[in-house]
Design a protein around this nucleic acid. Sequence first.
DNA 1: TAAATTTAACCATTATATTGGTAAATATGT
DNA 2: ACATATTTACCAATATAATGGTTAAATTTA
Lengths: 87, 87
Amino acid sequence: MLEIITIKDVKVKIGERCKALRKSNGLSRDELAEALDVSSTTIQNIENGKNATLDNILKVANHFGLLQSITKEIDKVIIDQNNISLY
Amino acid sequence: MLEIITIKDVKVKIGERCKALRKSNGLSRDELAEALDVSSTTIQNIENGKNATLDNILKVANHFGLLQSITKEIDKVIIDQNNISLY
DNA sequence: TAAATTTAACCATTATATTGGTAAATATGT
DNA sequence: ACATATTTACCAATATAATGGTTAAATTTA
């Protein structure tokens, strides 16, 4: 089963995750936007999978304490690359 | 040992990884830039941890076949969030 | 039901990432 | 040593993300 994942797919997935994190923390878009010092339109764009800056994506991640995890996962992605399966 | 990781740290790390991937594939910045249809300045900025768009970061990841891994890691980050340790 | 909140979609302006170019400094190879 | 390739750093122009605002739709709450 070959899953073709596109860049758009990843952006949409990141947006969904940001939205889920915001909801599970009981925040409105305005509240999160204010906490991150960005506009709520930017939050909206991120959540809808529009193109965004790495900085703002990481601001969201940081607000929910995910920077540490992300750092670890970046390292793991490299390891995965070295152990890639051809089948 | 409390490690305080900043947004800048993550951007620098991502840049280092992009550079390592490019090098290990024997590409110059110009070659990678042309392959991704972006300018070599953009590659330079990414590698130096400057702010960039999610789209261009994912273009690099996609070129080296990392989209699949990234997708999985996004899911994992959420799981990590739920199992977060307080100590 | 109505009222309040949140989300969505649009717009003009601002801020900034990207582009394409140049030139200088480093590194690599002959 | 030289020549080549790569990297780095700058710049003005362009493209686009971000902003702040409004309005409408959708959802939630009373």
